[in-house]
Design a protein around this nucleic acid. Structure first.
Lengths: 149, 149
DNA sequence: AGGAATCCCTACTAATTCCGTGGGAATTGT
DNA sequence: ACAATTCCCACGGAATTAGTAGGGATTCCT
């Protein structure tokens, strides 16, 4: 159930941008340095984010990136979908990246039904949590809730 | 956020066993055939499940596997942990397979806080859903609920 | 105008993870 | 004895993903 490094980096950088949203545009170089991310890899990631309309860019000297919308209008789910292509734990429950599985009978597949619920649980979090929400939560002290793993 | 094929196969096979729990022991060969899984791969998977106390085995002719507990006493979460080692979407929020991430400051990492909630959401489903629950849900007609991806 | 900074794009390599296979030993029922 | 089966570990290869290389286009500054 791992999140790709690609999405991890992308989210980390975007959260940083959201935190410094008042400072105007920021360069990849700066973003990469601040967040411990290889510049060239981040470049690739931001290309995708730009094409998806999550960030906007300005080329040339004094150029850089800025968020295309307010932090509260960008959800984690949107970003993950852009960077990973899907969120669903198995292909057979994904709408945007559906792929049939090899189970003998998909209609009565108990695993599929269960994974549907898992997907809903994940989506329920990431699609309702914006960059702003994520930042706010951290500021008010991360309270752990005990569930293991 | 993908579930490994390993866990997928393991769960599929266990659900099958749970559905036929009254038939006594079943061989890997049979399980593999019924569920479209490569025998040798399934063998590996069941070795792990056996060591973890999820199934019990009997060697020799007329041997086979059977569940170590009732279907309602085996959760999906337990199985996934055995087969994948962890459930958490990122290493830095896993208790049983913790791994520090490369973010500049872990204490104030907004992504970590967010992923904590995702993990809780996933765990909330898989740790409360037993093999029996998963089967029951399918029998009562899988009702889709619309969330996309 | 020239140079420096920066994004844009594609292709490639490297690393890792994961799926699946092989072969043989031990055990048990017929 | 023989056949069926679990047990065990190691290995090969495929696929995915992380990260790199390099050059082009655009804009700003002096």
């Amino acid at each position: 159930m791992k999140l790709s490094t690609r999405s991890k980096y992308g989210l980390r950088a975007l959260l940083d941008m959201a935190a410094h949203v008042d400072d105007g545009a920021v360069t990849l170089k700066e973003l990469a340095k601040r967040n411990n991310i290889p510049v060239k890899f981040l470049e690739q990631i931001f290309l995708a984010l730009r094409n998806a309309g999550v960030v906007r860019s300005r080329v040339g000297a004094q150029g850089g990136y800025h968020l295309a919308r307010l932090p509260k209008e960008i959800t984690l789910g949107e970003v993950i979908r852009v960077l990973d292509g899907t969120i669903a734990p198995v292909g057979c429950v994904s709408q945007i990246a559906y792929e049939p599985c090899t189970c003998p009978d998909m209609e009565t597949c108990a695993l599929r039904a269960a994974m549907n619920r898992v997907r809903d649980a994940i989506v329920g979090v990431v699609d309702t949590m914006s960059l702003a929400d994520a930042l706010a939560q951290t500021k008010t002290r991360t309270r752990r809730n005990g569930r293991s793993d």
